[in-house]
Amino acid sequence: MPTPTRITPESLHAAAAEILERDGRDGLTMQAVATALGVRAPSLYKHVRDREHLVRTVADGVARELGDRVDAAVAATTDAPSAARAIAAAARRFAHERPNGYALVFGPLPESERADRAALDRASAAVMEVARRLAGEEHALDAARTLTAWMHGFTAMELAGAFRLGGDLDRAWEFGMEHLLVGLSGGSAVPGR
């Protein structure tokens, strides 16, 4: 008799994340993950309660991965404007590489499927710190929300193919980023460019 496959949190997440990117959130089912892992669906219930918990588990992992990428991008910078650019660029790259995973972090989901608060807080820690450095303590949350909303709006429109007037999207991204940074830093000149 063959030895049953041992399911680990890592193997479960890897299989689920691959299915999510290939088949979308609707295709992320207990049966699909079980098949990918070479087990029967009831075996997964030792690791996740139900499909909602499966989606939430994947969302947690995606939020942590995005946070790791943002942290790595910020670590290579020396000033707040460069860090803000690096954060936005890392999130944009992630969205293009993992659009369905990105949607688990930024898209509308039932509360039961959203990444947990700790994963989201961890993913946004660098954004908050950079916003604090750009706009000051009093305006840090507002600045973080503005930066995130601009980055997400641009990226979501880009992924949806909504920019149909032509032109260079990378140039538009840079233009928006530069003007946003001037605004967030109180209208002062923005170093790093």
Rank of each mutant, 00 (worst) to 15 (best):
T5A: 12
I7A: 03
T8E: 07
E10W: 10
E18C: 05
E18F: 03
E21H: 06
E21N: 06
D23R: 03
D26V: 11
L28P: 07
Q31V: 09
V33A: 09
A36Y: 11
A36E: 15
L37K: 14
G38M: 08
P42N: 15
H47C: 10
H53V: 07
H53E: 12
R56V: 09
A59F: 01
A63M: 03
R64H: 11
E65M: 08
D71C: 04
A76S: 05
T78W: 09
A84E: 09
A88I: 06
A91G: 13
R93T: 13
A103P: 03
L104H: 02
V105W: 04
A118H: 10
R122Q: 10
L134N: 07
A135E: 05
E137F: 14
A140R: 13
L141P: 11
D142S: 02
A143K: 01
T148E: 13
G153K: 07
G153L: 09
T155A: 03
E158D: 14
L159C: 03
A162M: 10
R164I: 13
L165F: 14
L165Y: 14
G167I: 02
D170L: 02
F175R: 04
L180I: 03
L181V: 06
G183K: 09
G186Y: 14
S188T: 14
S188Q: 13
P191G: 13
